[in-house]
């Protein structure tokens, strides 16, 4: 008798499917009805919410800001996390594992605590501002609250640990023998990085970058706490629309726009990268 082990997958598949799809479907469906406030919707299918989102400069600007801060945070995360991941991956002593464990542990810390840590560091009486002013670099305290730069820093902080962990596994797949061969043939470290490490790490960098970008697009806490009620990303606007204004249909519409935007950006990025790869292959 053949045991159908694959049948065991059905309950977990169904559970995951229901959990992920039902709640989202309710909101997506609601987005196609006119919002009447207080959780009430119209009776007939209507695109009025979508028309409003795509014809109102405020919503379009918010979408643009969301994409912009997420993209900047992604670039910063990759730039800062790659060297860390590379160094840890190439460490031969037990320090590598210790550092890696430290990064894993840091990802367990709730984002609220992390963001408040940033707020305290950048506070007017905080050590950073005191240092900047005492050395004459700045004449008055620099605050990140209520600025787009602050939101980018918050998002970067949120994804940095994840970035290091992802890129660590990417660097580990690059054989050190290739680096040694390049070195033997006289390649300098920058050249070796540009011609050997970066091309080999590129697929992982793109995949990791997209994951970080997707996390930033949906991030609420960093954007809400550091945006200070002055910088709105779509998740902040969705929370405000649903929790404070109790406009479910409009919130559903904004969530749908966010989802579609994320999917489109991911698909377009993959197409672009593939074309670049193909072009490079043809040229080579």
């Amino acid at each position: 008798m053949t045991v159908r082990w694959d049948l065991l997958l059905i309950p977990s598949f169904l559970f995951t499917f229901i959990l992920l799809s039902v709640s989202q479907t309710l909101f997506l469906e609601g987005s196609f009805y006119k919002d009447l406030g207080l959780g009430r919707t119209g009776d007939t299918l209507d695109l009025v919410n979508y028309v409003r989102v795509f014809t109102d400069g405020f919503y379009l600007t918010t979408l643009w800001i969301t994409v912009k801060v997420s993209a900047l945070a992604t670039i910063c995360t990759l730039v800062f996390s790659f060297p860390v991941a590379y160094v840890i991956a190439r460490m031969r002593s037990s320090w590598g594992m210790i550092l890696l464990s430290g990064i894993v542990v840091s990802t367990f810390i709730t984002i609220v605590i992390k963001v408040f840590g940033i707020i305290i560091i950048f506070s007017a009486d905080g050590w950073l501002n005191q240092f900047l002013m005492s050395t004459g670099i700045t004449t008055e305290p620099y605050s990140i609250i209520g600025t787009q730069e602050g939101v980018v820093i918050g998002l970067m902080y949120f994804t940095l640990g994840f970035g290091v962990l992802t890129l660590y596994s990417v660097v580990q797949t690059i054989p050190t023998s290739l680096e040694e061969a390049a070195e033997i043939h006289g390649a300098s470290r920058p050249r070796m990085f540009r011609r050997v490490i970066l091309p080999l790490a590129m697929p992982g960098l793109v995949a990791g970058g997209l994951m970080v970008f997707n996390m930033c697009m949906g991030a609420f806490t960093s954007a809400a706490l550091l945006g200070g009620g002055k910088v709105f990303t779509l998740p902040v606007l969705i929370q405000r629309t649903i929790m404070m204004e109790v406009k479910y249909s409009m919130a559903g519409t904004l969530a749908a726009v966010l989802l579609v935007a994320v999917i489109l950006i991911n698909v377009l990025s993959i197409i672009l990268i593939r074309r670049m790869h193909f072009a490079r292959g043809v040229l080579a």
């Binding site: 405020f58 600007t61 918010t62």
Partner: peptide, 12 residues
């Protein structure tokens, strides 16, 4: 009020 506030105060 909320609509007027959001459009005017948010620095996006």
């Amino acid at each position: 009020w909320v609509d007027q506030w959001t459009r005017a105060i948010v620095t996006n």
